[in-house]
Design a protein around this nucleic acid. Structure first.
Lengths: 195, 195
DNA sequence: GTCTATAAGTAGATAGAC
DNA sequence: GTCTATCTACTTATAGAC
């Protein structure tokens, strides 16, 4: 199916999302103008509106896409074994997934304030759904007596905050591999929850 | 010493900083205008420039003030006993200090991108100085054989990320007191590092 | 699908009256 | 010290030519 001359929607579309992701992560949503995004893509500002109805949708689509991908990948790798094995799989998955997408992670944690109330509700729901997967593991292990966790909800939030924190300091060029980092964090989590 | 009629610098100055702190925390530095801050204070936009040379200084002064206060308070409470006692004191201090200043904490972690390079360097130095206090404790405990920590630098960052995370979900109206939260987190940290 | 041009509004910061 | 008024530049988003 030949396309109209000058039509580049299948190329420009992803480039717009990529440019927005990179610029939002670097400078923050509010500090980035549509003109900056357009310049990064290599088009004029008006052309962006062929790919997004407005700037807000650009942010929301990036965040929803990231959360959908996170949940789908988490469920795809989900071990069904003992709580301790499921926890280990969760910790390693969370770190590797987040280290591979530093920009999307940064945006998803930093730009919640810049979502409209309706969009915020959607993203919050997805985030909570992801957290529930970890809490379910902690509850199962506590019920089985292999974990000693005083408060599964707070332990869930504490572990996720600790794990996600890797994205603030990790550099691929540093002395540790992603797997090495995951190993260190799994050791800490394991000891913190073991009965 | 009578002041000139209409002079309110000793009242307006702190109100400007308070308004900027609250608005920056709520909406983000880039999304807040000088006119919004002025409206919150109850003056016109031009009057703000009696208290700050520009918007950037407003942000930097808030962040530097927060970091200075954090370091001073940390040193003031610093236990000099055994590593385990010093770690417990650090954990409890960090949580109570941060839960008492949610807006300043939020700004200091979220608005680093909006600092000029020179200002960023200053804040980063203060942050690292604070982190060093925790790493020193972990090293002392590891050398003494009471902690088993594979990598003191990464463990330092992991613990701080976990502890600071409380500010994202804690509500004073919730079921837990600040002290109760500190207790739960200290339990996790203790088990994660104990030999 | 992309361009140029533009509408309509807001930004940070300053000048000068009071 | 605060006000009003203003400068210059930039903002998101749209209209219409090609």
């Amino acid at each position: 199916m030949a396309r109209t001359a000058g039509s580049h929607s299948d190329i420009t579309g992803p480039k717009v999302a990529d440019a927005a992701l990179r610029l939002f992560a670097r400078h923050g949503y509010a500090a980035v103008s549509m003109r900056q995004i357009a310049a990064e893509v290599g088009v004029q500002a008006g052309a962006l509106y062929n790919y997004t109805p407005d700037k807000q949708s650009l942010l929301f689509d990036l965040m929803r896409g990231h959360m959908d991908e996170l949940i789908a990948a988490s469920d795809a790798q989900g071990s069904t074994g003992a709580p301790r094995d499921r926890l280990e799989a969760f910790v390693r998955f969370h770190i590797l997934f987040h280290l591979a997408r530093p920009d999307a992670v940064f945006i998803s944690y930093m730009e919640l304030r810049n979502l409209t109330p309706e969009n915020f509700t959607v993203i919050e729901g997805l985030r909570r759904s992801y957290e529930d997967r970890l809490e379910t593991i902690l509850k199962a292990g506590t019920d089985a007596g292999v974990f000693a966790v005083a408060d599964t909800k707070i332990t869930t939030l504490a572990i996720i905050a600790m794990l996600t924190g890797v994205t603030t300091w990790y550099r691929a060029s540093g002395r540790l591999s992603s797997e090495g980092v995951a190993e260190l964090y799994w050791d800490m989590v394991r000891r913190a929850v073991n009965a």
